[in-house]
Amino acid sequence: MARDENLPTLRAWLRPTWWRRSMPQTQTAYVALAFAALVIVVWMLAPVFMTPRNLLNISKNFSFIAVMSLGETLVIISGGIDLSVGSVCALTAVVTMMLMRFFSATAVVNVPGATIVLAAILALALASLIGFVNGLLIAGLRLSPFVTTLGMLSIARGMTYVLTQGRAQYPVGPDIALFTRLTNGAVLGLPPQLVYLLVIAIIMALALRQLVWGRHLYAVGGNMQAAALTGVRVPRILISVYTLSGVAAGFSGVLIAGWLGAAPANLASGYELRVIAAAVIGGANLAGGVGGAAGAVIGAALIEVIRNGFVLIGANTYWEEVFVGVVIVLAMLVDQIRTRRLF
């Protein structure tokens, strides 16, 4: 009771004042501000940062991570985590290359573009299947997302080595030029990766906001029991997000392979941590129920600007990882301060 008595005064003290009211309401908005500040600082320290060439380079580098981060963000909103994205990315990349080689030896080789399109579609089907299995194990058998996707991380990476015997795979056949154009050319003067990323991000933002599916996803992440009680089909939602995360990781793998012109078996190893970091910095809450498309994109961009900035400024790049880590912790701190109103 004593606590109740004190509450009104506490409330009055915390009543929004003009400066507090004018502060952004979401974690993503804070990170957007931090991103803008970081860009200005890096620009001032290294003017070469703002050259079209460098910006192009950054936008390519961060697009791969950001695409995966979009899928990861869906999983994180549901209250889970997907550690398998790096491995799925690599497996999809090598399988695309291998299928491209396979189709180049069949009749479809005569249809322009068929080898790469078929290869990519089949490889993405594999990626979605892996995500689907993750979802099935987590939603159906109620296994922990962490352990399930940790297992899948190992399985998918292992399969990548088994299939390739550790050798890098290269695009083969008549559609190499098309593949390169689709993954490393220019769309309206922009890198294609960036265009794909923006299109996917916009679709995802709309789906989260406008579709019943999006509403149910947030409900599952916020209170799974309540969602189930009110008739939300929780297993369906969970399976859908892990499947989409698999597809996003796979798509990123295809893009990376095209950009590199090769798919090494150790492609994207360790990326899962960067992907999760990007999602979390962007405002996705590992407790579930919070996150969005814009956050994933900005989070990934922020990390890339830090990496790029270290190189341009000529600082010791070993410090880069330390700095990224500090940013992750700072982002969490801002989230705490914002939601608990510590000040």
């Binding site: 509403r215 947030y218 916020g222 939300v232």
Partner: peptide, 26 residues
């Protein structure tokens, strides 16, 4: 059984959202 992270209107309609069905999308 309420989801803390959603608005009161969203909770009110949780599981029975008013919707348009357009080509398989709700």
């Amino acid at each position: 059984a309420l989801a803390d992270n959603l608005s009161s209107a969203a909770n009110l309609y949780l599981g029975r959202e008013l919707q348009w069905r357009i080509g398989g999308l709700s």
